[in-house]
Design a protein around this nucleic acid. Structure first.
Length: 241
DNA sequence: CAAATTGTTTAGCT
DNA sequence: CAGCTAAACAATTT
């Protein structure tokens, strides 16, 4: 689940803000931690990168969906959720996710690196990315301390839009190329959000899980790239090293 | 149906 | 100690 999807989740939960759910689930929280959520109302929901954040009065909860996480609103999967909120006839279930109580709240979050945030800063992204000249662009884009919210789909699509090879080194790019990469990443995240909401995300994928380059019709290369060894789909002709 | 995967954390090694 | 690697986790989709 990538950043834009979490923003959509926030919107879907807005109608429940101010309400007091019955809370349960199989998440491994201590008795004391469960107690922090029971009988409390949801005061606020927000996102930071791939983190979904819920404030129960004085307590912040962080849900991270990792690779396989999902959620359902009034449409249970019929297996035990990690976390469940029930409001009268409405229920929300979160599956296969990590659930954490944030002891020190959300004061440590830097909103300026969240690609979906109003406070996002292109300048900061540029400064941060320049600090890792030895890294491949594919790793830089996936670095959550620089581009919080960017995942493997966004990485692949942005690199194709930039006609940039995933294994190019940050240090080999000039400032204009880096600026363009940073801006394109933000822009694509916004598109991802719009397309996902309209349910037309997949049909807009250019290279992710695709076989042929939409530009030259050559067969795309499929390779695990970078330190992260995440799958990259790219065209060796259109995306030069 | 086997394989791949919208991801991160932690332990343990060099 | 910095930096890397393997392992663990987990369930749907292709």
């Amino acid at each position: 689940m990538e950043g834009p999807s979490i923003v959509i989740l926030v919107e879907e939960l807005e109608p429940f803000v101010g309400k007091k759910p019955k809370v349960d689930g199989s998440a491994p929280l201590s008795v004391a931690e469960w107690k922090l959520l029971t009988g409390k109302c949801i005061c606020e929901v927000r996102s930071w990168g791939k983190h979904f954040l819920i404030r129960f009065e004085e307590t912040w909860v962080r849900i991270h969906f990792l690779m396989f996480g999902s959620y359902r609103i009034n449409h249970s999967r019929g297996r035990p959720p990690k976390l469940r909120f029930r409001f009268g006839k409405d229920e929300i279930e979160f599956y296969t996710c990590s659930v954490k109580i944030l002891e020190q709240g959300i004061s440590d979050y830097d909103w300026s690196i969240d690609v979906m945030s109003k406070k996002w800063s292109a300048g900061k992204a540029l400064t941060n990315v320049k600090k890792m000249p030895k890294s491949s662009v594919c790793d830089a884009l996936m670095d959550q301390s620089i581009f919080a919210g960017v995942g493997n789909i966004i990485k692949n699509e942005v690199l194709f839009l930039q006609r940039m090879h995933p294994e190019r080194r940050i240090g080999d790019l000039n400032t204009e190329e880096l600026k363009s990469l940073v801006r394109s990443t933000r822009a694509y995240c916004k598109k991802f959000y719009v397309w996902k909401k309209k349910n037309i995300l997949k049909r807009n994928w250019q290279v992710f899980r695709k076989k042929t380059c939409p530009e030259c019709l050559r067969t795309l290369t499929k390779k695990h790239t970078g330190i992260g060894q995440r799958r990259s789909f790219y065209c060796i002709k259109c995306q030069k090293k």
